[in-house]
Design a protein around this nucleic acid. Structure first.
Lengths: 217, 217, 217, 217
DNA sequence: TATGAATGAGCCTTCATTCAT
DNA sequence: CATGAATGAAGGCTCATTCAT
């Protein structure tokens, strides 16, 4: 038998393994774009190239699909990031700037950012989602940032600042960028659009100026 | 007719005029709490103390009710605020701090903040809402903040900063506070809760430190 | 205002009250004819002259509709029957015959008999139904029959028979008639049809002959 | 090829022939337990140890599987029974008793009884099933019983009774026992359970008392 | 004007059946 | 022959909207 017969076999097997991923990807896009309620499972299936019924072979319900989307997509890169921070040997000013830009590259401008928009929008209806997100993203992110700021203080680079709130000063612009990108930017004229990289630069400068040790004015 | 008959008539007339307001208020609460899709018009009507049919006498559809909620609730106090800024004669540092706290008092901690959460969550499905919000809130707010920062520069208090992005540095913590309050806080354990007033203080300090004129280090 | 205006008002009000009954009646017919699973709620609604949605205003689910059908239809006439038995002053032979014919007239040949067929067919899937039926029909019926047979023994008309099983000897032909009527008779050629009245006569004669006191052969 | 290879081949061949039987057996169990509609073909396949697709290699549809279950399971033992009756040389009283107990042993307490429950429950939806059942079970059974009763009359043991209905007096308790066993007994507390053997005894006694020739009272 | 019973389009979910492997 | 992934028609249920009163 010619090899041409094997191709469909391989294709089908490959698809079997790929299905959940394709469905999750399609679901992420649509949930982010339209929200949970306005997304029809049939559309998710179509976007993944399968029929409605097939979706239910992999996820028992629309809600479980939603939870899976969140669970799978937020698979944290925090261990990796923590290691990078440990290895970094420049001053903390540079580390903070690098961290913020790194976040934009790896999260903010990728599909993963949609998850944050999704969680912010739908958390009330799916408390479980909010809990997962807090455990997997908020808390680790919080600790990572706190560790970096503590490094700055420990090395005498930063003034002894109020860490508890300073952490959120770094989180706030990220949340803001995401909500802006997914909520207002897509529907509005581009006259007041934001250049994320430059905003991050500007924001980092302002905050770092505020945190750095300096002689009294 | 005895007086006893007039009172209900008056009350009814008064109530009749109040109806749309009661409906809008109930709708705001429910839309903010559950989102557009998960809010049933019957519940809105119940909360407003009328029947489902009555709601449709005042608003032609659920979507129009939603738009009206946004339109009516964001009735900006920007003229008032602009006048206050014009009258202010302290230094800009104080003005910024006062402005941020004033926002928290008048918007952030009131029901009006829910509108922002609502718009952020639902704007994709209702582009018209996003447009309204931008015209009525974003742009006026942007200009108000820009005017304040410009005042600081003009008076030699602030360094010549990148105004376009600095404006968003003031907006970001407000958006963040709102999304935090409405999305994560209600569903999560309170171990990492944020004290808004102190966060605003801290954030203002950091940003102002970054913006203020000072001798080179 | 002329009376002609009242009619629709009355009609609507009357319908509101009549709806549940009409739906239950339609549901009984269809459930008996086709079984629970093969009956579509839309058909029930159509038979009751309303739309699908209306059915769900009165019953929260298809299953609850089913349970209501059973509950409402078996509203027992056992107190009435018990009183009749108490008042009866003929011999027990006549009483038994009258009871069996009375059952046929009041239950066996009415729609109520369909409930028995329904319960027999679907009890496995709805244990609650079986329980209700046992409490409301089986047990009271059992006691009623036992009381009658005991009367025969007490009055010296019947031999001292095994009451526990004799009761079921009277129940069996009733169950049989119902299952025959609803299961085999409707689908089969009429060559072997049963005349219920005559079968009851015959059955009563045989059983009574077996129970009556008599001189030894 | 080594012998070790042949054994699985043989086993496979043997299983292949057994497949339909295993499927029918599994289907009987599940159909009886849950009814036609609530039984999923996949479960039947699982119980038979094959995949869903395989079932459709042997039966073209769920409905045909159902018909096959009935057709195959009711393979009547009537010729055998008829011969036994022909050979019997005791009095007809004993014959009737033996027949009823024999029915309980060979049918009533075996899986075959489930078919009767199934037919009674589902006949309306599958008229063809009802027809098959009547041809294969009802009619032969009717004739067998009639023949026995006729024997009693011919031999002067029984009074000249109404044969047409007396036949059903013997069938009724059997139908009753089966419906009781499969419908009410499994779902109900066992306080009113029936001992089949003793009920058959009691029922036979009553009926025979009613049919036997005797001196007038 | 206010009511709430009625409607029916729409969506999630199931499951018998098919078919590529 | 056997498998099990894929299909899609069918049906239960919801809820925005209408309209007779």
């Amino acid at each position: 038998m010619p090899a041409s017969n094997e191709i469909p076999a391989v294709r089908r097997a490959r698809r079997k393994e790929a299905r959940p991923g394709e469905l999750l990807s399609a679901a992420l896009d649509l949930f982010v774009e339209r929200g949970f309620a306005a997304t029809r499972v049939e559309e998710v299936a179509q976007h993944a190239g399968v029929s409605k019924g097939t979706l239910f072979l992999y996820f028992p319900s629309k809600e479980e699909l939603f939870k899976a989307v969140v669970r799978e997509t937020i698979a944290g890169r925090f261990t990796e990031w923590n290691e990078e921070i440990g290895r970094f040997d420049g001053n903390t000013d540079s580390l903070v700037r690098q961290l913020m830009h790194s976040w934009w590259e790896r999260v903010g401008q990728t599909k993963a950012a949609g998850i944050t928009k999704l969680v912010m929008s739908e958390a009330c209806l799916f408390p479980e989602i909010a809990t997962i997100y807090q455990h997997e993203v908020i808390t680790p992110g919080h600790q990572l940032i706190r560790r970096v700021l503590q490094r700055g203080i420990d090395r005498g680079e930063f003034r002894p600042i109020d860490l508890d709130h300073a952490v959120y000063s770094l989180i706030a612009p990220m949340i803001f960028l995401i909500m802006w990108k997914y909520s207002l930017a897509p529907c509005c004229p581009h006259n007041e659009s934001i250049d994320p990289e430059r905003f991050i630069d500007s924001q980092a400068s302002l905050l770092l100026e505020g945190m750095l040790q300096r002689p009294a004015r």
